[in-house]
Design a protein around this nucleic acid. Structure first.
Length: 440
RNA sequence: CGGGGCAUGGCGCAGUCUGGUAGCGCACCUGGUUUGGGACCAGGGGGUCGCAAGUUCGAAUCUUGCUGCCCCGACCA
């Protein structure tokens, strides 16, 4: 993409409304614009990142055996009245009336709807296990939206729902998601720690929040430091096998958010040198809730014994839009965002230091054409802005690599390749820069 | 929902206390000089001062009501 044809409204100064660093940087780097409290428009650069995050989530869900579908944002109130949640959900739920005075709502979640879809399509235990997910916009009318995209009212969420014949199978489904989450966050360059969470009325031990560590995180977390460095399961992880060893080795170590933190237990279980207290952001939440929805909505399958049983369910959320804020919180410096390559809107930027200079333009054009042909996403700053402006903007938007092309270097036949994360710069021929970017 | 704060050009702000016909920086447009880390000179465009009533000869400024946004708290992916 040529910057001259792109919409990239960067801001030199911090907008007054943004308090935390990810919110400030998202506004300054031209990723989002707020349109109402807690509601954001995604600008061209922002939507590219969002889609990259989505892609990783989708790939890991698919790998773990979940099946994608897409449920609507608007739901009828009737469905929620049957599950008994319509009155209980409170003002967080945005209620809408259509032209026929039918009560509708903008979905804050989809348990009811997915349960009904499942019940309509599945009758036999032989069709289990099943895990259905979608990536869809949700709306929760938070009393106080804040922190930009981290705590918006409208947000993009991946939610998956597992259906199993009995509790043991349900546990296996839960473990698959547990492992898929480790991989998902790991691929985004995040260190996500699963922490036991409140299981609510169902009880049991099957609920975890996935917390990423970031200095500016909203809540305080405490855990064994080994959890941070634990290896992420590889691409070849076998989801049909018993995954309990992967899950158990993590659950064996202390990890808690400040809400349920028990300092005495922490000190008893974790040697002082291994205690880590840090700040964290919740980016995922998984839980098993048995027949909470399958019973009232009559989602039953016929078992091997010929009897109908309500299915055992779990649900598994990932805050997709929130993750963008979370990644920035975890990866930035004083100059701007530092995108991990897996989610970066473009892999590289080309800075033309003297637009209009025949040789500089020629080398830039050639690099741009060749990188594009090789399938490398590249943003070419072909505007006639001054060098300093281009450097600052490129650092701000945080593309992993920058190729700086100017007359001074070209005199000796070199361009400069800069790594945004490390700040390292190296002079090399345009061909060498091309190779460096296409081989990695 | 309780407490606090803000609303003046695209962005950041001054002016409000002490009413007198709107200003600064950045951004934008034109011309020139510049050109490897947010240039300089000259000229220029853009604002019903959040909305509505009221007080006054006169309101960004005073009064009342409303709306929007931000921060702290309770709540949450």
């Amino acid at each position: 993409m040529r910057l001259s044809q792109f919409l990239l409204p960067t801001l030199k100064e911090d907008p007054a409304e943004a308090q935390i660093v990810s919110h400030r940087l998202m506004l300054r780097a031209g990723l989002i614009r707020q349109t109402a409290a807690g509601i954001y428009a995604w600008l061209p650069l922002g939507i590219r990142v969002l889609k990259n995050i989505e892609k990783i989530v989708r790939e890991e869900m698919d790998r773990a055996g979940a099946v994608e579908l897409l449920m609507p944002t608007l739901q009828s109130a009737e469905l929620w009245q049957r599950s008994g949640r319509y009155d209980g959900y409170g003002k967080e739920m945005l209620r809408i009336t259509d032209r026929h005075d039918r009560e509708m709502l903008y979905g804050p979640t989809n348990e009811e709807m997915v349960t009904e879809l499942f019940a309509n399509g599945v009758r036999s235990y032989k069709d289990l296990p099943m895990n259905l997910y979608h990536i869809q916009w949700k709306f929760r009318d938070e009393i106080r939206p804040r922190f930009g995209v981290m705590r918006g009212r409208e947000f993009l969420m991946k939610d998956a729902y597992s259906f199993d014949l009995d509790e043991e199978k349900g546990r296996e489904a839960y473990y698959r998601m547990f492992v898929a989450y480790l991989r998902t966050f790991g691929r985004m360059g995040l260190k996500a720690v699963p922490m036991a969470a409140d299981t609510g009325p169902i009880g049991g031990d099957l609920s975890h929040e996935f917390i990423i560590l970031a200095e500016t995180g909203e809540s305080e977390v405490f855990c064994h430091k080994d959890l941070i460095e634990m290896e992420i399961p590889g691409e070849d992880v076998d989801y049909t096998a018993d995954l309990s060893s992967i899950v158990d080795e993590r659950r064996a170590l202390y990890a808690a958010t400040d809400e349920i933190h028990d300092q005495a237990k922490f000190e008893a279980e974790v040697p002082e040198a291994d205690r880590l207290s840090a700040r964290g952001i919740e980016v995922g939440h998984i839980f098993f809730f048995g027949t909470k929805y399958s019973e009232p909505l009559n989602a039953v399958v016929t078992g091997p014994d010929g009897k109908d049983v309500p299915v055992q369910m779990g649900s598994y959320g990932i805050g997709v839009s929130r993750l963008m804020g979370g990644i920035i919180e975890a990866s930035h410096d004083e100059n701007g965002i530092i995108w991990p390559e897996s989610v970066a809107p473009y892999k590289a930027g080309i800075i033309n230091l003297k637009s209009g200079d025949a040789e500089t333009d020629r080398v830039c054009e050639e690099l741009y054409a060749k990188l594009t042909a090789e399938g490398v996403d590249v943003l070419y700053d072909d505007t006639d802005a001054r060098g300093g402006t281009k450097f600052s903007n490129m650092d701000l938007i945080g593309l992993p690599w920058q190729i700086v092309v100017g007359p001074r270097g070209l005199k000796s036949g070199v361009v400069e390749l800069k790594n945004r994360a490390t700040g390292d710069r190296e002079e090399m021929t345009p061909d060498a820069a091309l190779k460096a970017l296409t081989s990695s």
